[in-house]
Simulated scan of single mutants.
Amino acid sequence: MDSAVHVESGPDHDDLHYLRELEAIKQLKARYCRLLDAKDWSEWRTVFTDDAVNDTSEVGGKKITGADEIVAFLEATLGKTSQPTVHHVHNPEIELTSATTATGVWAMQDVVRLKPGLNLLGYGHYFETYEKVDGTWYIKALKLTRLRVDFFNPLISLRMPTWLNTIAARRAGR
C-alpha cells in the first residue's frame, strides 16, 4: 500500500502554483473570521465580491445578496461590543475549479453572545465559492449549515435540537 500523499493539480496549474492558490484562499477565510470577531466592518467588507451571497436560511437566518448588505446586516445583529463572537474554521476542502474560481467546505465552530447570560455554541460547515479578481481571491457565496447548537450561560448548558433552534432563531430575528 502506497502511503504517499498525492496533491492533484487544478486545471492547467503546476503543483507550486496550485498550493499557493489554496493558501491564499485559506488566508482569506482566516481574515473573514478575525475581522468578523474584531467587528472591523470596513475591513471585513473587503473579503467579499460586490455581489456576494450569504445564506443562513437553513439555520433560521436569511439569504442576503450584496457585500454591503451582508456587512450592514451582521453589524446590526452582532455589532455590539457587548456581544462578542468567536469563529473558528478548520479542515478545509478547497477545489480550484478554474484559474479564477474555487469552491470550499470548512468545518466550523462559533460562540456568539446573544444577550447577557445567553450564549450560543454552534458546530457546522461553511460551503463557499470564491472568485479571483485582479489577482486577489474573494468570497463570492457562503452558506452556513449547523450540525449542533448548544445554548449556555455561566451556570447551565443546554443542547438545542435542530428543529427548536430554527424556531428560536426565527423569533430572535437572526
Rank of each mutant, 00 (worst) to 15 (best):
D2E: 14
S3H: 14
H6E: 13
S9M: 02
G10L: 11
P11C: 04
P11W: 00
D12Y: 00
H13N: 10
L16S: 07
H17L: 11
Y18I: 13
Y18E: 15
Y18N: 15
L19Q: 14
L22D: 03
L22I: 11
E23D: 14
A24P: 06
K26G: 13
Q27A: 10
L28A: 06
L28Y: 06
A30K: 09
R31V: 06
Y32I: 03
Y32M: 08
L35I: 06
D37L: 04
K39S: 11
K39G: 01
D40F: 01
W41T: 01
S42P: 08
E43V: 12
T46R: 13
V47T: 04
F48S: 09
F48C: 11
A52M: 08
A52E: 02
N54Y: 15
D55T: 14
S57C: 01
G60I: 07
G60V: 10
G61Y: 09
G61R: 09
K63Y: 06
I64Q: 03
G66S: 02
A67Q: 12
E69F: 10
E69D: 15
V71T: 15
V71F: 11
A72G: 07
F73I: 07
L74T: 15
T81N: 03
T81Y: 05
T81C: 02
Q83L: 07
P84H: 04
N91W: 06
N91D: 13
P92G: 01
P92D: 00
P92F: 05
E93H: 09
L96H: 01
T97S: 04
S98L: 05
S98T: 05
S98Q: 07
A99H: 05
T100L: 04
T100W: 00
T100D: 10
T101D: 08
G104C: 00
W106M: 01
A107R: 14
M108V: 03
M108Y: 04
V111S: 01
V111F: 11
V111A: 10
V112R: 03
R113K: 12
K115C: 14
K115W: 11
P116S: 00
G117I: 10
G117N: 01
G117W: 04
L118G: 01
L120K: 06
L121E: 09
Y123Q: 10
Y123N: 10
G124S: 00
H125G: 03
H125R: 14
Y126D: 04
Y126A: 05
E128C: 10
E128A: 03
T129R: 09
E131G: 09
G135Y: 08
W137P: 00
Y138D: 00
I139M: 14
L142A: 03
L142K: 08
K143P: 03
T145H: 07
L147C: 04
F151E: 14
F151W: 03
F152K: 05
N153K: 11
P154T: 00
P154M: 09
L155A: 13
S157N: 05
R159V: 04
R159T: 10
P161G: 02
P161A: 05
W163Q: 08
W163A: 10
L164Y: 02
L164D: 08
L164G: 02
T166F: 08
A168N: 06
R170W: 12
R171Q: 14
R174G: 12
R174E: 14
R174V: 15
